[in-house]
Nucleic acid binder design. Structure first.
Lengths: 101, 101
DNA sequence: TATCTTGGTTACTTTCTGTAAGCAAGTATA
DNA sequence: TATACTTGCTTACAGAAAGTAACCAAGATA
């Protein structure tokens, strides 16, 4: 008989944010939109996984994708309101890192 | 020529917290110490990985381990000050989850 | 025509995680 | 006495996730 220990929404959030690269990607987009290759080189993620994560985050409504039909094609990623609302969490982590690492 | 985009400490924090199960384990210990099997069943992690994570977190000074020499042996895990200092980050995530999920 | 660009995708390898079994060392049960 | 039972692990193996490198479209440039 296990008792429910954690709220579903909170558990989902923790699982979502706990996936590798996710917080780093969101942090990249906090201040301005960025294109695929910028994020890729900035955080050192492989293109295969970055593509996967951006799709997931878009599906979650955290990131939005805008295609500019230039040549070569330009794709800009940015945060939605839901994504921007994560700023305090990241800032909190930043403070903790500053104080304790 | 890539510019350094993120502070080392912050990146370390994000990588640490971004590892699977880590935030859920810390959340388990926020209010009281727990023994191995409690954490295991509460969050549904495998014993193999829980053991690995607790060792890492102990090495980082986030979790402390206390052995009670009973039979069968009892081992209690709790947060250090450094670990407790993560509470605002988890609370922030909790609020976000409440507001946006 | 050959080459370069970006934002992907695909196939393959390596690393990580889950599953199940086993272990020590006392206690309780038969 | 022998067997089973407990916790907190560890080990061996299998499956899932991530890294690597090659490739693609489609237009711009040399």
């Amino acid at each position: 008989m296990t008792t429910p220990v954690i709220c579903d929404k909170f558990e989902k959030a923790l699982t979502l944010m706990g996936k590798r690269w996710v917080t780093l990607i969101i942090f990249q987009l906090l201040n301005d939109s960025k294109r695929f290759c910028e994020i890729e080189t900035n955080i050192g993620i492989s293109g295969r996984v970055l593509s996967e994560r951006l799709k997931d985050l878009e599906k979650e409504g955290i990131v939005k994708r805008k295609v500019y039909d230039e040549t070569p094609v330009r794709v800009e990623y940015s945060l939605t309101e839901k994504g921007k609302a994560l700023e305090p969490v990241l800032k909190g982590t930043q403070e903790w890192a500053h104080d304790w690492l």
